[in-house]
Computed example of a mutant assay.
Amino acid sequence: MAHTYELEATLRERVGKGSARALRRDGKIPAVIYGGNKDPLPIAINSKETTLKLHAGGFLTQIATINVDGKQERVLARDYQLDPVRDFLVHVDFLRISESTRLTVDVPVHFINEETSPGIKRGGVLNVVRHTVELECPATSIPESIVVDLAGLDLGDSAHISLVTLPANVTPAITDRDFTIATIAAPAGLKEELKGEGEGEEGGAEAE
Rank of each mutant, 00 (worst) to 15 (best):
L52A: 12
H131V: 02
I142N: 07
P30M: 12
L89T: 03
E144P: 02
T51E: 15
L89Q: 07
R122M: 13
I29D: 10
R25F: 09
E144I: 11
Q62D: 14
A151K: 07
Q81P: 00
R96W: 06
R102L: 09
H131Q: 11
L76M: 12
P167V: 01
T171L: 08
E134Q: 15
R102W: 13
P143A: 05
T132I: 05
S100F: 13
A31Y: 07
R130F: 06
E136I: 03
P42E: 12
V92H: 04
A44V: 00
H55Y: 15
R74V: 14
L60G: 01
T51G: 09
I120N: 02
Y34M: 07
P172A: 04
D106Q: 14
A168E: 14
T132C: 07
T104F: 11
D83P: 03
L126H: 00
N67C: 10
I66K: 06
H160W: 13
I142G: 07
P30G: 13
P42Q: 10
E114D: 08
A159I: 00
T171W: 09
D154R: 05
K28T: 11
D149C: 01
I66Y: 11
I45C: 04
L60F: 07
V125H: 04
A168P: 01
A31H: 09
L41P: 00
I142H: 05
V68K: 09
L126T: 03
V133L: 13
E49P: 01
I146V: 12
K38D: 12
D83R: 00
E115P: 01
